[in-house]
Simulated assay, not measured.
Amino acid sequence: MSFRPLEQPSDLFDAIRAVLLERIRDIHVGNYDDFGADEAGRVGTGGEILIEFERTTPGERAPDGRYGYEYAITLHCVVGRHRHRAALEAVNLAAVVQRVATDALWGLPVDQIKRPEQLRAEPSFYKQGANGYDAWGVSFNQRITLGPNLAEEDPQVGTGPGALVSWAASDDEADYETPNP
């Protein structure tokens, strides 16, 4: 898995999609907002996972100055009702997705993403009838930081009044001096 920089929220979406497609066979992964556009062809196979970014809140800035965000994400595991045990297949798919998401950094740089928190699965939307579907949602919060490192490349350390002159530890205060400019 490559570690590409996280420049915008859609990069997180693309990374989640790529990992799910790589780790789960016979599945379609799409955008929650696009569900229904080609419903008949996709949910009829092994199922579909719909990625939904529900909300975001500002997060802490990273030590390197990047702005932080916390996203609430749900991965809806959808199975066509025409299948014999659609409700149970949706639960099974949610269990697989939950295992994938447990420690997922989605192939993104470790300095830009934290492990998912508050991971949970519960029934999601459904539609009754022969052309309907059952679904379970795997939800979690994920903290990210976007953009380039904002810290200085090579900060000046140890210059000016009061800078540490010696790195050797000593119990004698006379060993510590302020450098003369």
Score class of each variant (00 low, 15 high):
Asp33Arg: 09
Ala40Tyr: 15
Asp134Gln: 15
Glu52Ser: 12
Ala62Glu: 08
Arg61Tyr: 03
Gly59Met: 11
Ile27Glu: 03
Pro179Arg: 01
Glu117Cys: 05
Glu54Arg: 09
Ser139Phe: 11
Asp103Met: 10
Gly36Ser: 09
Gln8Asp: 11
Ala86Val: 04
Arg99Trp: 04
Phe53Pro: 06
Gly107Cys: 07
Asp11Val: 04
Arg4Lys: 13
Arg4Asn: 14
Gln156Tyr: 11
Leu93Tyr: 02
Glu70His: 07
Glu52Ala: 13
Ile73Asp: 09
Glu7Arg: 12
Phe3Pro: 03
Asn31Pro: 05
Ala130Phe: 07
Thr159Pro: 00
Tyr32Met: 06
Asp34Lys: 12
Thr74Glu: 06
Gly36Phe: 09
His76Ala: 07
Asn149Trp: 00
Val110Ala: 15
Thr57Leu: 14
Ala130Pro: 12
Gly162Asp: 03
Lys114Ser: 10
Asp33Ala: 10
Ser124Ile: 04
Gly129Cys: 05
Pro161Val: 00
Ala87His: 14
Gly30Trp: 03
Glu173Phe: 11
Thr57Ser: 13
Ala104Cys: 04
Asp111Leu: 03
Asp14Pro: 00
His84Pro: 06
Gly162Lys: 02
Asp14Phe: 06
Val97Gln: 00
Phe13Tyr: 15
Gly107Phe: 01
Ala174Trp: 03
Ala151Gly: 03
Arg23Asp: 10
Pro5Ile: 11
Thr45Glu: 13
Leu12Val: 01
Asp111Asn: 12
Leu150Arg: 09
Asn180Glu: 15
Arg42Lys: 14
Val138Glu: 05
Gly147Tyr: 06
Pro179Met: 03
Ile49Lys: 04
Ala104Gly: 07
Pro123Arg: 10
Tyr32Gln: 06
Val96Pro: 05
Glu122Leu: 12
Asn131Met: 12
Val96Tyr: 01
Arg55Pro: 04
Pro63Ser: 02
Glu54Gly: 14
Pro109Glu: 14
Leu108Gly: 07
Asp14Tyr: 05
Phe13Cys: 06
Gly44Ser: 15
Glu54Pro: 02
Pro58Ile: 12
Gln156Arg: 15
Asn92Val: 11
Asn149Cys: 00
Asp171Lys: 10
Gly129Lys: 06
Gln112Trp: 10
Asn31Gln: 13
Cys77Met: 02
Asn180Asp: 15
Gly68Phe: 09
Ile73Tyr: 02
Gly160Cys: 04
Arg17Trp: 03
Val79Met: 06
Ala37Leu: 14
Arg61Cys: 02
Pro9Ala: 10
Ala86Leu: 07
Asp171Arg: 11
Ala163Trp: 00
Phe140Gly: 04
Val19Cys: 09
Arg120Asn: 06
Ala37Asn: 12
Ile73Glu: 08
Arg17Asn: 12
Pro179His: 01
Ala37Ser: 13
Ala104Phe: 00
Glu173Met: 05
Glu122Ser: 13
Gly162Ser: 04
Ala62Met: 05
Arg4Tyr: 10
Ala101Ser: 11
Gln142Pro: 06
Tyr71Leu: 12
Glu177Ser: 04
Ala86Asp: 11
Ser2Arg: 04
Arg81Asn: 14
Ile49Gln: 02
Phe35Asn: 09
Ser166Lys: 12
Glu89Cys: 11
